[in-house]
Design a protein around this nucleic acid. Structure first.
Length: 644
RNA sequence: GCCGCCGUAGCUCAGUGGUAGAGCACGUCAUUGGUAAUGACGGGGUCGGGUGUUCAAUCCACCCCGGCGGCACCA
């Protein structure tokens, strides 16, 4: 600010405006136009959001934030959390406030209260929220003395808030936002008044949480809501939720006869013939890709003695997730939760030369992990699963080329399954870990170099690495915009050391190989679930368990239909025959609902001309084609995605 | 594991302190119909499991199992 007290603000279009002395964002908006003043929710000052009624103190680049601004949503949602907390405390004075942030698509607020909230309470709270919005209470910010604030919240019985202030750094500014008779400790920023929240919000669910996210601390009750800038956005979001429900793999798995789960085998999957066909198609596809990429495939035992898990470090770090079996009196066998120690045993047989490296050892390894009961979720989170696992034994110098090759393979595989958006996360050393800091330094540096060499952009995920090494995680985005973590690549200097794996180098001496743990799909169960949801059950032709159904119009066509089906099967197509005494409309409906990609309808006309009437899923067009041409066409499509 | 909700026919769901019902699915029969439901008839349930309260429990209470939504966890 100039000595004169004049303030110079730069607007988004590059123009500048001068104000004599202090102004607020609201005044700036008003000076630009009354429409903007009404729409204004906050002001961005040199990039950071501020309250509209906070005074501007220095020259800056500013932008008035309105409902059209994507960042406004965060503000809106945070306000929704406050309005909800106000509503809750008006209705239930015994509820203590804790935290209530904006989150993706909405907000939540955690309360401490001995009586649980019920779904009926949600409706009441939402109604009260709408009243608070209608009251249009001005939202004002106050700065308090730390000790006064602590005393105030203690006096009010808000012990969580008081505790929170006590844990803030001494120099932190204690700001309080007041709206009507209600107030909350908060850093802000906030909307100028509760009326600006609008009406496009909805309370969605009730759940448990813990104070400070720690399961040893007091349990809290969390109320979730969603909030948007317009009714249309809210409607679109609710429609998306409906769409997600329709795509739910548990529902589609049942409707399409792919698999089922039952309580006697919680966390495991019973694969039905159609589902298992899908599995085998995916497995064989991966097997083919790995063979071309220079992998060898192995198979290691399900049950391995405790002593090996002790050596590998799993017994110490992973014990609680392992299923064990007592055997031969003293012995304890563990059902493998991972394949890596087994692969090291294969690597260790005989003597390996540096000339043999890299060795890329793959296994469709069936693993069991005793996941906490609350974590289980359809096929997304199970206790029995199969990984498309492989371990690359290589030298430190080979990490970069191997990582690059893997990243290329992975992206090509995802494309083949119809996923085009892939994000990468780089996870570094966790608090609980094996190996020295020096080893971790080297592992993280090597992975970083390799990732950059592969041309990947990534986000950092500090402290989230595996206990034996840093990792890359590959996150793919599905057809309705949800992210799923599938692939991984982990650099491991620790396990070869622990399990004493070595190779003979050029210098004739023994050296430790590096292990790269890697998976593309992650677990078959989870990946197939994602695939089913991504395609909403309508799997691409090459993956569909039943690719076509030959359906007759009348029984006169039975012989020819059998001939067509046999010919299709001879072409390697997965084709079923529907000779039932039903009307063609009924058959079309049924197979369409079963999401069969192609119906081959045969009646009198087709029999006479050796043709089939093709009807493809999602279209009511019919196309009569010569049988030979149809089969040639379909078997080409069945070969799967083309790659150069 | 924690919090809340839920568990009735294969599926989706209704229902009541006096041992249960619909639609779809399934079976039988009739029908041989050219692209999203032909009709009639019929079979089917230890109301998740256990204990208790009660003359009587699918219904009420408690415990257990499982599921759903989150939390924590995802090595």
């Amino acid at each position: 600010m100039a000595e004169t007290g004049e303030l110079c603000l730069t607007l988004p279009d590059g123009s500048t405006r001068r104000f004599p002395g202090l102004v607020t964002g609201a005044q700036v908006a008003a000076s630009i136009g009354p429409g903007l003043a009404r729409a204004a929710l906050a002001i961005r000052v040199d990039g950071s959001m501020q309250d509209l009624n906070a005074p501007l103190k220095r020259d800056a680049a500013i932008a008035i934030v309105t409902g059209k601004d994507v960042d406004a949503l965060e503000l809106l949602r945070h306000d929704a959390a406050h309005v909800m907390a106000e509503a809750v405390q008006e209705l239930y004075p015994d509820a203590q406030v804790t935290f209530g942030p904006a989150i993706e698509n909405g907000f939540y607020y955690d309360f401490h209260r001995s009586t649980p909230f019920t779904p009926e309470d949600l409706a009441k709270i939402e109604t009260r929220m709408r009243e608070i919005v209608a009251r249009d209470e001005a939202i004002t910010r106050e700065v308090w003395e730390r000790d006064d604030a602590i005393a105030f919240f203690k006096r009010k019985g808000e012990h969580f808030k008081a505790e929170h202030i006590e844990t803030l750094p001494r120099e932190a500014e204690i700001s309080v936002y007041r709206q009507g008779a209600w107030l909350d400790l908060c850093v802000g920023p906030h909307l100028p008044s509760t009326g600006k929240l609008g009406t496009a919000f909805k309370l969605t669910k009730l759940s448990g949480a813990y104070w400070r996210g720690d399961s040893n601390k007091p349990p809290l009750q969390r109320i979730y809501g969603t909030a948007w800038a317009s009714e249309q956005q809210l409607k679109d979001y609710l429609r998306l939720l409906e769409e997600a429900e329709k795509r739910d793999h548990r529902r589609l798995g049942r409707e399409l006869g792919l698999f089922h789960q039952q309580e006697e085998a919680a966390g495991a999957v019973f694969w039905h013939p159609k589902g298992w066909t899908l599995w085998r198609t995916v497995e064989n596809y991966i097997r083919g890709r790995l063979a071309v990429a220079g992998y060898v495939e192995v198979r290691t035992p399900q049950l391995i003695d405790r002593s090996l898990w002790e050596k590998s470090g799993h017994w110490e770090k992973f014990r609680e997730h392992m299923f064990t079996v007592a055997a031969d009196g003293e012995k304890v066998l563990a059902v493998k939760p991972m394949n890596c120690p087994g692969h090291v045993q294969i690597f260790k047989q005989g003597i390996t030369s540096y000339r043999d490296l890299p060795i890329r050892m793959a296994e469709f390894g069936a693993c069991h992990r005793n996941e906490p009961s609350g974590a289980l979720h359809g096929m997304m989170r199970v206790r029995a699963f199969t990984q498309d696992d492989a371990h690359i034994f290589c030298t430190e110098a080979q990490i970069v080329t191997e990582t690059r090759a893997f990243c290329d393979l992975l992206q090509s595989v995802y494309r083949d399954f119809g996923f085009t958006e892939v994000k990468v996360k780089f996870s570094t050393r966790p608090a609980v870990r094996a190996g020295t800091d020096e080893v971790w330094d080297r592992a993280e540096a090597a992975l970083k170099t390799a990732t950059e060499a592969a041309g990947l952009t990534y986000t950092l995920n500090p402290g989230e690495g595996a206990f034996y090494g840093p990792k890359l995680e590959f996150v793919l985005r599905d057809a309705i915009g949800r992210d799923w973590q599938c692939g991984t690549l982990q650099v491991d200097f620790v396990l070869p050391e622990r399990l004493d794996a070595s190779y003979v180098a050029e210098d004739g001496k023994k050296h430790r190989p590096v292990m790269l743990h890697r998976a593309i799909l992650g677990s078959f169960e989870r990946f197939l679930a994602i695939l089913i949801e991504h395609h909403a059950g309508s799997l691409p032709f090459w993956l569909a368990p039943v690719q076509g159904v030959v359906a007759t119009i009348t029984n006169d066509g039975d012989d020819y239909a059998r001939e067509v089906a046999a010919a299709a099967q001879a072409h390697g197509l997965r084709v079923a025959l529907d000779l039932r005494n039903e009307k063609i409309g009924y058959k079309v409906r049924e197979h369409s609902l079963a999401k069969v990609p192609v119906l081959l309808v045969v009646g009198k006309r087709e029999g006479e001309t050796r043709s089939v009437a093709l009807r493809r899923l999602g279209s009511d067009r019919q196309e009569t084609v010569a049988l030979d041409a149809a089969l040639a066409d379909l078997s080409a499509a069945a070969a799967g995605p083309a790659r150069s």
